[in-house]
């Protein structure tokens, strides 16, 4: 398969970026999207040009590092996957593919397609934990957790922190990310004691960092590689309301 790639190139955080066009020929349809970029980079190195920088590590859809906005969609034209799980068979021969970095005020570009997502860590540091020190925990079966609660909690905990929700949202809102963490803990008895403080602090941090607000377009849910539901956002709103008035 042959492709025309228009890729955002930006030397560093301060530099002005621009789109550069590359042509790539004879790519196997079984190739993953990132492997296709590897091939491009191999060619660039051969021409003594700097390769395109993008984040990636696990290449199996779990570390959450890969983060490309491909033809208008975070993680490209397939559902429930990350960019590293996208395969070229999802494109047509001769396609023009535009690749952009995640765009959001709290996610500044570091270089080319790599962005800084430490804002997410900052939010977790505010309250995305249960304050338990190592040692002294009761027996794991001492507190019974209904299977349904555990399953729902796991649904939310599956978030990989890739930021596709922010990238997809027209308001660059981080509600799905934050609510996934809030829900994960809110659904477990262990998370209850700190629930109010957690949601208050995490939401305050989210606002402070400059993410947008939710306007319920639910684009985040559509693009989430882990299919996290917007019902977690509702749960967070509920938790938040309780934290304020309850």
């Amino acid at each position: 398969m042959d492709f025309t790639l228009k890729i955002w190139r930006q030397k560093n955080a301060k530099a002005k970026g621009k789109f550069v066009t590359y042509n790539l020929k004879d790519v196997s349809s079984n190739c993953s999207f990132l492997e296709m970029l590897d091939i491009l980079n191999e060619q660039l190195v051969h021409q003594n040009e700097e390769p395109v920088v993008f984040d990636t590590d696990c290449r199996e859809g779990i570390c959450g590092l890969c983060s490309l906005y491909i033809n208008g969609r975070p993680h490209g034209p397939d559902d429930a996957i990350t960019t590293c799980q996208l395969h070229m068979r999802k494109f047509k021969d001769g396609d023009i593919i535009v690749v952009e970095p995640w765009r959001a005020r709290p996610f500044p570009v570091i270089k080319d397609l790599m962005v800084d997502r430490t804002a997410f860590d900052a939010i977790i540091q505010e309250g995305g934990f249960i304050s338990v020190n190592t040692g002294g925990a009761p027996d794991a079966n001492a507190i019974i957790i209904p299977k349904e609660a555990a399953e729902l909690s796991m649904d939310a905990a599956a978030c990989i922190g890739c930021g596709a929700c922010v990238a997809a949202c027209k308001n660059a809102s981080a509600m799905l990310f934050v609510s996934a963490k809030v829900s994960h803990f809110a659904l477990l008895p262990q998370g209850k004691p700190e629930a109010k403080e957690r949601v208050r602090k995490m939401v305050a941090k989210m606002d402070e960092l400059g993410f947008g607000n939710c306007t319920n377009t639910f684009a985040c849910e559509v693009e989430c590689p882990k299919l996290i539901s917007v019902s977690t956002i509702a749960r967070m709103n509920r938790e938040f309301l309780w934290a304020k008035i309850g």
């Binding site: 033809n71 208008g72 959001a104 005020r105």
Partner: peptide
């Protein structure tokens, strides 16, 4: 605030399937 949260816009408008 929502307008400000994405200072650099995308070249390709979002094609996510939303209502």
């Amino acid at each position: 605030r929502n307008w400000r949260s994405r200072p650099v816009r995308y070249k390709i408008n979002p094609r996510t399937d939303t209502p």
